[in-house]
Write a protein that binds this DNA or RNA. Structure first.
Lengths: 214, 214
DNA sequence: TAAAAACCTGACTAGTTGGTCAGGTTTGAT
DNA sequence: ATCAAACCTGACCAACTAGTCAGGTTTTTA
């Protein structure tokens, strides 16, 4: 341990915390919260278990820290869309953002999925305080688009579920996709899949795909 | 224990096996394979743990039995579709079948999702022996539709992923959906969501929704 | 330089886990 | 009625688990 501060002005503590979080993401994605082992996280991080517990009080603290990061990840430009915006552009951008997250943060997506599938025991506050409000706001905007004749009549809830289901599928089921295609999806593949999805969803809503998303 | 055979001609053994499988599905869906506890499964089934282990040799045997049932569940009419069939009808029926499974077998869908998210450690043979062949066959039919001008040009893989991602989402993320809508989806809701999805996917493929699926 | 803060880590602990084992009970067949 | 098959279940066990604890080492601060 030559110094707690290296040349990039990052402390050893920050480095190790980061290492542990990355290792924990992999372990939680592989075995779920209940099945994950602190010793395994430590092994993945290349640190002794008690060193992991020096930085994070418990397995649960670690998991909740990761969940918090994930919740922050879902923030997107879609959150600010209003009735004045063009639905085609907003939806295309949202899908693009979601697909990029699926590509660049596959483990986060997987952990979120695992948490929901397991009954979301750790997300009650998130749902009650933020998510439901967010949803109500987005549904309202979509309904305003419909009322303003900018979007064909549809159920806003189902529209959003379908966008989430498709975009998150590329992260969550990446193992299946890799097996079925014989190789994992690279950047180019994700770009193609994004275009394909934008085309499917927008055409399915009778919207024209904006030129920059083709 | 009045008799091993009740009036419906089912042995106590069959009854108990069934009870255990149902209990295990709930436990595996809630905690994943690694996080599930045989004692919890036993408690859910209302049997002593060793009685559970009398019927199923181990936790793993139980899990593999459930996975096998799930693999069987995925069989559908879509498996038999050929280039001679109408893609609109085939896809609409496939989506209908998938949505019905999501409604009636939510835990199965969740367990399948958990297995894939966790890296599919128990499905290697399934992927190599059956799933990849199945996929190659389905992709070929879709490509034949495209060649025959029955379906607009698209990537068959992405089309299927999008169908799976959307339909399975209703089962896998049912906790989130219930929270966001304030109540869980009933039969009527599923029918509406199915129609909405058929409309989205078929319209997105420039296909006309067959009358019986409107 | 000394003291405080940050970091590190092996030894240990109480509790939990997936089984094994042995033997008892019930049911069905003859 | 007897015996075999099916079913049941408490006691037990080796291994594993999430920590706690104590104390050592390194770095920073004044």
């Amino acid at each position: 341990m030559t110094a707690s501060r290296n040349e990039k002005d990052v402390t050893i503590g920050e480095l190790n915390r980061s290492k542990i979080l990355r290792a924990a993401e992999e372990e939680f994605a592989s075995h779920g919260y209940k099945g994950a082992r602190v010793q395994q996280i430590a092994d993945r991080a290349g640190l002794p278990k008690t060193n992991v517990l020096y930085y994070f009080k418990s397995k649960e603290s670690l998991y909740l820290a990761i969940l918090e990061n994930i919740m922050r990840l879902w923030n997107s430009r879609f959150d600010e869309a209003t009735v004045h915006d063009d639905p085609a552009r907003v939806l295309a951008q949202y899908i693009t953002d979601k697909m990029e997250i699926s590509r660049s943060h596959a483990n986060s997506s997987k952990i979120f999925a695992l948490e929901i599938i397991n009954g979301a025991p750790n997300l009650n506050d998130f749902f009650k305080d933020q998510h439901s409000k967010w949803m109500a706001g987005r549904v309202a905007v979509i309904n305003e688009w419909i009322k303003a004749g900018k979007l064909k009549e549809t159920n806003p809830y189902y529209l959003l579920y379908n966008i989430w289901g498709t975009s998150q599928h590329y992260a969550d089921f990446s193992t299946q996709i890799t097996e079925l295609q014989g190789s994992s999806m690279g950047q180019k593949d994700f770009e193609n899949a994004t275009k394909n999805l934008i085309h499917l969803i927008l055409t399915g809503c009778d919207l024209t795909v904006p030129a920059e998303f083709r």
